[in-house]
Every structure is written in structure tokens, then in C-alpha cells.
Design a protein around this nucleic acid. Structure first.
Lengths: 147, 147
DNA sequence: CTCGATATTTCATGTTGTCAACTAAATGGT
DNA sequence: ACCATTTAGTTGACAACATGAAATATCGAG
């Protein structure tokens, strides 16, 4: 079964296809969970980034892999709903820190729990051992040093 | 990070988090590959759907999980570039079939190969056995009856 | 102090997405 | 055959997202 000269790609291609399917379902669930709080996917992602603590706009752009000018708009919308606030950085007067309000943090927490529900549907069929195996494989795939 | 009796399922949560990371990278690679052909992610996805053969608009909307009116716009843009054409269905005069042109199919093929490159970066660290294990786990997770 | 780099915003523009309203065509019951 | 109901696709209005260029303010090095 370990033939090295098997078609170079068939297996890999199938894994990629399956991952594509996972990506689709993940989005579906994520956007749906966000919509339950009248948030878009991007807003929910932003709120999740801000849950641990304040962060400069520039860093948020890097984490979301988008242009800083885009972050401005997303934070604007969250701010106008009272979920996020801006405040200047004490260290550098150029940077502004975005910070989740209490309500924003609560929303982020509930969102995270909703996403936990997501996990149960697709992961329901897996035993604990299988989940462990899956976790280890995903870790290795991502180059996680948690080995 | 505390050693407390973590609520229900610490393992599941970690798997979800890892999947989130995979989703992020998948998008990054996909959009980048699409951009190499001056396509957006949605346009590339549409082209991939049309590569096997023509399809009615309605079906495309279902596969992309979006409103039919959205499909109209995406196909419009692809059509204006000569990558896709519309043609009436012989069976039902209400339906229009979207079909990739020769150039569209070529682009789709090249895009697929680019995505194969994606596979190699994250999957490079996995042996054939591990990939097989991963494939089986993902299949089961998705409820695939391919057992 | 001046010069170049950095952080953020604003503006213009294009794509994606939803929803409601519309046309055209199929379908089903009487 | 007739009419009501569905169904497929488009259109128009509108919001969110995304990029790029230009503007402003600040930092940091020389």
C-alpha cells in the first residue's frame, strides 16, 4: 500500500477536495451563527479577534489578511453598534487600538459557543480516538510545533 | 490554558480551531491562485463548477449556496471575458445553461493545478499513510458513504 | 530639523451578497 | 382549454467587503 510510485496526486487531490467541502460547511455554519446576532462573517471574525484584548488596526489587517483601509470600515460598523470602541495607543500616537466593549465581549463569547455547536454536527460521527488522530494530523499539516 | 476541568470538550474545541486555521489558509491560496488569472474567488469557484459541463443557473446557485440573482452577476462578468457562455436549455425554455468556453475550461484546468500546489505546502509534511488516514477521517466527518 | 517610513483614514471603484418585483414559461386542477 | 400557482432567470436598489491611491499625522534616523 505504500507504493511510492503511485499516481503522484490522486490521494492528495482527494484530500484537497474534502478540505474544500469542509471549508464550505464551515462558512455556512459561521455565517449562520453570525447572522443570529445580525452580524456579517467579517464582523464576527473581527469580534473574535478582539475578544482577548485590544489590538491596533494594523495588526487586525494582518490577521484578517486584508488592507488596513478595509479594517476601518468593519470597525466603524461594529463601533456604531456599540460592540467596539477605538482609543489611542499610549505608546504611539499614530496607532489606534480597537477594543471590544462589554457587550461586544458577551456577543463574542456567545458566538464562540454557537460555533461549538457547529463542531458537533460534523464531528458527531467521530470517536474520541478519531478526533485525537484528526487533531494530530491537522497539527502536523499546519506545522504546529506541539509535537 | 488552565488545567481546570474544561467544560465539555477541550479536544473538540481544538479541532474546530485547527479547522478554522485550515479554512484561512485554503482561502488565502485559493484567492491568490485566482488572482493570478485576474479572477476573484467567486469567479474561480464558478469556473470550477462549470468545468465538467454546462449547468442551469438555478443549480449553480444551490451549489454556491447563494441567491440566483447573485449567480447572474458572476456569470455576467465571466461571460464578458469570454470564459463562459449562456445558452437556452432544449428541455425547458425557462432555464439557461451556463457553459465554459474553451478558454474557460483551460483556465479552470490551470487553476486546479495551482490548487494542487496549495496541497503540497500544507500536506508536504504528511506521509502517504497519514494522508490516507486524514482522508478517511475527513470522509467520515462529512458523512461520506465512500467506505 | 529634514527625510523617509509607518498608522490610519478618506475617496473612488468594483465585486459579492440579499431582497423584492418583474417577465416568461411550465404545471396542475377543474 | 382556462386559470392559478410555481419555477427560472433577470433587474434594480442597496449594504458590506475589498483594493488602491492620496492625504494626514506621527515616529525615528541621520
Amino acid at each position: 500500500m505504500t507504493e511510492r510510485t503511485t499516481p503522484p496526486d490522486r490521494l492528495t487531490r482527494e484530500v484537497v477536495e474534502l478540505i474544500g467541502e469542509i471549508v464550505g460547511r464551515y462558512h455556512q455554519e459561521y455565517d449562520q451563527a453570525a447572522a443570529a446576532y445580525s452580524l456579517t462573517g467579517a464582523q464576527a471574525r473581527m469580534l473574535a479577534l478582539l475578544a482577548p484584548g485590544p489590538s491596533p488596526m494594523r495588526l487586525l489587517a494582518e490577521q484578517l489578511k486584508c488592507e488596513p483601509s478595509n479594517v476601518t470600515g468593519i470597525v466603524d460598523r461594529l463601533e456604531s453598534r456599540g460592540l467596539v470602541e477605538r482609543r489611542p495607543s499610549p505608546d504611539d500616537r499614530r496607532v489606534k487600538l480597537a477594543e471590544a466593549t462589554d457587550e461586544g465581549r458577551q456577543t463574542a463569547t456567545r458566538l464562540r459557543e454557537s460555533l461549538g455547536d457547529f463542531a458537533q454536527t460534523p464531528l458527531a460521527g467521530l470517536t474520541t480516538e478519531e478526533r485525537t488522530a484528526l487533531r494530530d494530523l491537522l497539527r502536523r499539516m499546519l506545522g504546529d510545533p506541539t509535537d
